[in-house]
Each structure stands twice: as C-alpha cells, then as structure tokens.
Design a protein around this nucleic acid. Structure first.
Length: 482
RNA sequence: GCCACUAUAGUCUAGCGGUUAGGACGUUGGCCUCUCACGCCGAAGACCCGGGUUCGAUUCCCGGUGGUGGUGCCA
C-alpha cells in the first residue's frame, strides 16, 4: 500500500461494553482479513478511556467471542506484544506526554472554561467552542494549574481552510475546518478522549491501515492534523458503513439480539455468522457465498467494500447456517444438539436421541429449530384413551380416514412385530393385499405411530426412533381407540 | 439548523456509457415423495426523482428527495 515497503498492521479497537456487537465483529473481521491476506499483524486494543462506562469482565467477553469467531490476534491483552500495554486506561502517562508536546508545538492548548461558560456559549447560538483560552499566557496557565483549577487540553484547529484525505472506499474526502471544533484531547480526569488516544496509539502501535466505522469519516481531518503536527505518517483509511436493523435504524444491542453471543445461543454456528456478516457490505467478485475463513482471507479486498449501509437479514443468515449444519459430521451435530434437547426437555423422551439427531440434522436451519421440529414427540398422548385426534387419519389426497385405519391396524401391528429390515416391503405387501395404495397404508401407519401430521421422517424412521416395543405399544393404543 | 456520506427487486449484491440489468436469500408454481425437510426444474420481482453531458445513460455531472452519520470532557 502507498507503494511503501511496510508490513501491514491493522487493529480492532472496541470499547469494552460487555458484549461483542455484530457490527463490531464485522469491523474486526475486515481488519483481521486484511491483515491475514497481506501477511501482516492483527492487533486487539481496548479503548476504555471513558472510566464512567467501565464494565467488569467486558474484555474477556470480547476475547472469547473473537476466539469463537475464529479470529486470532497477534498482539493485545493477555498475549502481549512489543507495543503494549494494549489497554488504553493503562497508557494514561503516554497520552499526557504527547499532549504536552503537542501544546508546545502549538497544536493544542489548555482550556479552563467552565461548563457554565460553555453552556452559555451554546445558548447564545455558538455552534462550536470560541477558542477563548487559546492565547492565555504561560504565566496565567501555570498559576491556574497551580491553584488546582480543573482544565482540559483542546486541539487547536485552524479557523480557515480545508483538509483533504483519501479514503479507500469513499475516495477523496474534503472537510472545511470551519465545520470542525477544537475538541477536547485530554479530559479533566487526565484521560484522553478517543480523538487523541486513537491517533497516538495507532501511530505508536505502527498501525498502517485504519479500518473503522464511518462515524469517523468527517473527523479524520482532525486526526490528520495530529499526525502532521507530530510529523508522523498518516495511516491508510478505510471507513465502513454500518449494519442496519432496517432502513432507518442501526442494528443495536438495545433493539434486540445484535450480540454475537446472542446468535450463538439461538443456535447459529460461529462460522456461519462470520460468513454471513462478511458478505454484508463486502463481496468477492464472483458469486460464491459460502466461504470458509481461509477463503475469506484469500478473497478479501478493499475494493469489494460497499459504500452504502446494509440491512441485517437473519433469514438469509439462517439459510447459510443450514448449509453449515448439513455438512457437520453426525456426531458433531449430535453433540451440538444435546444442550438444546436438555433445554427443551427432549432428552427425557422415550426415543433414540442419536437417531433423532440424524433425522433432525437435515431439517433444522439453526439449532433452536429443534424445539419446533421435535414437537411431534409429544403429539401422541400415551396416557389418554384416545392418544390424538383420530381425524388426523383423514387425508384428502390419499382419501384415508379412521375407518380405513381401523381396517388395517391389526395387520400393521403384526407386521411391526415380525418385521426386521423388511418393514417397508411388508407394508407394501399389505397395501397390495388390501387393494390399497402404498401411500394410504404408509400415511395411516405414520399417523398411528406419531399422532402428528408432520414428522421428520416416515413411518419406518419413526419405528426406529421409538424402538419396536414402544412403537407396538402406540399401535395397540390406537387400535383400541379406533 | 449546519456539514458530510449514501441511493440496483422485500433483503444482500454484480454492473464501472450500448446488457434480454447477472447471482443469492425470501416469496411463488411444479417435480420428487407416506408427512416434514432435502434435492431438482420454472415464475414473479429492481436501476429514487428532475435536469444536463452524450448518437446513447442504471453507469458521468448538477439539483432535489429519502436514508444514515457528524456537530459530546462517548467511542
């Protein structure tokens, strides 16, 4: 990039909110893919300069989510690295040092304005800070600091002129300085704001490509002013449009389940989620949609990034998830299904759970579909005289009804008793002997076994699922009910 | 309010001056089939509006409109 021989270094810099948002995960993913694609480093940095929003355990949540998503980072909390610490709250002195240097260079200044004065300013129609403290004498500054007056350090933005930079997805962006404010770099508590820490860290950590949300598109010239003031090289900028919940709302944790972990809990597979969000706002140049992490790494390119925002479509993610479920090894699917069986009380059903998994695997899109797909297990009330509504035997297409069921139930029971692997053949023979269609016998047989209009499999599968003794018990119940 | 970004079917997208506007999800018709699901074959469905530029605009320019973002001692 930039024609320079530099090793690519990208970072994901979340603030620890207590969960990993889907939008954040995608930003992380693109930064990760870009770094891996170019054989560079991917860094995790925690942006926790707002101490009032501290959430305990939040960093661990982010790290574990990234692990599950298959994104390993080269430097960051826990693993360390040559440019640490990687948690901003532990870098306070570093920011202060650079802030003072910036003041000395004229790029920033001390400001003692009170909240009251600032409010008055805005009440009088001002849209931005009036540089009131800009030309304060060194003497006065020292005195007021010595007196213990609270102060902040503000960036000194030129009053006139414009600034242009190149964004890899949006092209050249020009911003007029008059639309920018002398924002605060160091707060009264001595901590930096994002506006400052971000630049200092990106430079100190050698970040070459700054991949982040569009919310920073307009303020980037301010950051460039900082890079320039220190004589540092600016990074390459890549701004990303947000993921939306609908046309007018951003996907947000508050409005529902926008957390990565929430989707995991619903039975989405980590990689299906990653695969899906990779395609939200980016596309490889061919029509492939199901892509492994290594394929994503191989195909990722900034020019496939979308300039407009995209709406999150859980339905499509379900489809992608179903593709991954179908290709899981049977045992793996079974293991993944077990916790859901337990949650829905299915683990206590009198049936072969492993076989149930076999039947369910091609039929569920996400693991929590198991609840609905396994509901048929309780359709047959083994304790009632009439185990289910006998009207279920009626089928328009096959012209079956309870009377027909009654006429063959004895044979069904006999066949079930004697059959080994030839159950299907014997049922066919029964149909022939009775002058019925195969479908009629099979429909009646399956209904009699389950009491459910729809089941994940046919009559033969149901016998196997319940086991022969239980199946016979069911048929006997139906017989007496008829 | 001011500033910026953005705009192809319901959704995700391909397209980069001339195309029957391509693919996917979803929807839908059919086949397969003892039900469900899978699978297979079809169908419907889009270039925000108005001006330019051009022989010709979905594509380039301007304006409008819609949407989003920024305008925080949040990031």
């Amino acid at each position: 990039m930039n024609g320079k021989d530099t090793t690519v270094r990208t970072r994901f810099a979340p603030s620890p909110t207590g969960y990993l948002h889907i939008g954040g995960l995608r930003t992380a993913l693109y930064a990760y893919l870009f770094a891996r694609k170019h054989g560079g480093k991917f860094i995790l940095r925690i942006e926790d300069t707002d101490r009032t929003r501290e959430v305990k355990g939040a960093v661990d949540i982010i790290i574990s989510a990234m692990q599950k998503a298959g994104m390993d980072y080269d430097e960051g909390p826990i693993v360390g690295g040559d440019f640490g610490p990687y948690v901003q709250s532990e870098r306070k002195e570093i920011y202060l040092k650079y802030a003072h240097e910036l003041v000395a260079r004229g790029g920033a200044y001390y400001c003692f304005c009170t909240k009251e004065r600032l409010e008055e300013l805005h009440a009088n129609g001002a849209t931005k800070y009036d540089k009131h403290c800009l030309n304060m004498s060194k003497k006065e500054i020292d005195e007021r600091i010595a007196r213990g007056e609270p102060y902040v350090i503000r960036q000194n933005i030129p009053e006139h002129g414009t600034s242009t930079y190149h964004d890899e997805v949006f092209g050249d962006i020009t911003v007029d300085f008059k639309d920018l404010e002398d924002n605060i770099l160091i707060k009264t508590d001595g901590m930096p704001t994002y506006n400052f820490a971000n630049v200092i860290d990106d430079h100190l950590m050698g970040i070459t490509h700054c991949i982040r949300g569009v919310e920073y598109l307009m303020s980037t010239p301010k950051y460039n002013l900082l890079y320039d003031a220190f004589g540092w090289e600016r990074p390459v900028y890549v701004h990303l449009q947000p993921i939306m919940r609908d046309a007018t709302h951003k996907l947000s944790k508050r409005d529902g389940d926008a957390g990565f972990e929430d989707f995991l809990r619903k039975g989405f597979l980590p990689h299906a989620i990653v695969n899906y969000i990779a395609l939200l706002g980016w596309n490889p140049k061919d029509n492939r949609e199901k892509l492994s992490m290594s394929e994503l790494v191989e195909l990722f390119s900034i020019d496939g990034l979308q300039k407009s925002s995209s709406i999150f479509d859980e339905t499509k993610m379900r489809w992608l998830n179903s593709l991954y479920i179908k290709e899981m090894p049977q045992q793996e699917f079974h293991a993944a299904a077990l916790p859901f069986y337990a949650e829905y009380g299915i683990d206590k059903c009198a049936c072969d759970l492993e076989y149930l998994s076999e039947l369910l695997q091609p039929r569920v899109e996400i693991l929590s579909d198991i609840k609905e797909k396994a509901a048929f297990l309780t359709a047959f009330d083994t304790t009632a005289k009439t185990p289910f509504d006998l009207a279920l035997f009626e089928n328009k297409k096959w012209k079956t009804d309870a009377a027909m069921a009654k006429s063959i139930m004895d044979d069904c029971i006999e066949i079930t008793k004697s059959a080994t692997t030839d159950l299907g053949e014997k049922l066919n023979a029964l149909a022939e002997a009775k002058g019925l269609k195969k479908g009629q016998v099979l429909w009646i047989y399956r209904i009699a076994l389950t009491g459910a209009a729809a089941t994940p499999g046919g009559g033969e599968e149901m016998v196997k699922l319940f086991g022969k003794p239980a199946a016979l018990e069911r048929l006997e119940k139906v017989k007496s009910a008829l």
